[in-house]
Design a protein around this nucleic acid. Structure first.
Lengths: 158, 158
DNA sequence: ACAAGCTGTTACTATCATAATTACAGGAAG
DNA sequence: CTTCCTGTAATTATGATAGTAACAGCTTGT
């Protein structure tokens, strides 16, 4: 995971929650152009709509997001409290792990012939602890944090 | 860290410990060509000597390995029990983290302008738990595991 | 002293994963 | 029926990494 995919995916879900929430509650209906289209999200991520749609498609297939072709009204498939960072990580990461074994070592050698499995044990434990932390963090925490930081900014300006 | 560098670095240190240990103890002195040159290690890793030397140089600079130009007699700088997987990870990984923030998001947007910091908090916690596990695993564990697996193999053959 | 072999380092090339971009068929909605 | 959107695939660009080659300098044994 040398990429920003997880960050962008969380960004998308946060965006949908924040602006979908506002709209659902009827707050500030005068704010223009805060729709939930891939183009709008792309502006926030500073990426392009194609990439956003691909990520959203992946999230939808993983059961985190409800989307409909032709309609720019994505909705989270579950309450935001029930979506963890690990859920998103698994949705977009597939089978990848943080640490990678060198699959090509000399099986004739005492070290080369055994170290892959030894490392696999270690890496599995590392992965498990990282995933445990991701599982314990919900997207609600992130949304709350984002909104709190925004309020702190505007307070300074006032 | 989408690479095998950590695996290869641990491989190298394990190799030096296993075969350096044998030689130091005078065990099986008849075994030919089990020297500690970069060429010999490269055969075990199934890589090339240049790559091995580069990694060894990095490990030496990090204070994990003692090497000398012109002499194929590398030695671990510390007892193997005192070298953790985290030590090696830090030595070769530099400042990289498992999860990466998308540095390029729209600062004008409520989400884009705040999510980087929010994600940074989360990612720091994930990194900390992964590193704690790496810190708790020493290379001695890996060396023991490799030797144990090798014994199990030869036992089956006998 | 010298020959052979090794390290440490740099430069270069190849390879591959990922992001970015473009295009388009088909659904949704006024 | 026009307009805008999604979902998806194809393509290109970019960047990180491994692999390779080369060479100056040290070490050791003769």
């Amino acid at each position: 995971m040398q990429s920003h995919k997880l960050s962008d995916a969380i960004h998308i879900l946060t965006y949908i929650e924040v602006f979908g929430r506002d709209r659902a509650a009827g707050i500030d209906p005068s704010v223009p152009h805060v729709d939930l289209s891939s183009a709008s999200i792309a502006k926030s991520v500073e990426s392009n709509p194609g990439l956003i749609r691909r990520l959203m498609s992946t999230l939808a297939k993983a059961g985190l997001l409800d989307t409909r072709p032709g309609s720019a009204e994505p909705r989270l498939a579950r309450p935001i409290e029930d979506i963890s960072v690990l859920d998103v990580y698994r949705a977009i990461g597939g089978e990848t792990r943080f640490l990678n074994i060198d699959e090509k070592t000399n099986p004739q050698c005492i070290v080369g012939g055994n170290i892959q499995q030894s490392l696999n044990d270690v890496y599995s434990r590392v992965q498990a602890s990282a995933e445990a932390t991701m599982a314990s963090t919900s997207l609600a925490t992130i949304v709350d944090d984002v909104l709190r930081r925004e309020q702190a900014k505007t307070a300074v300006q006032a």
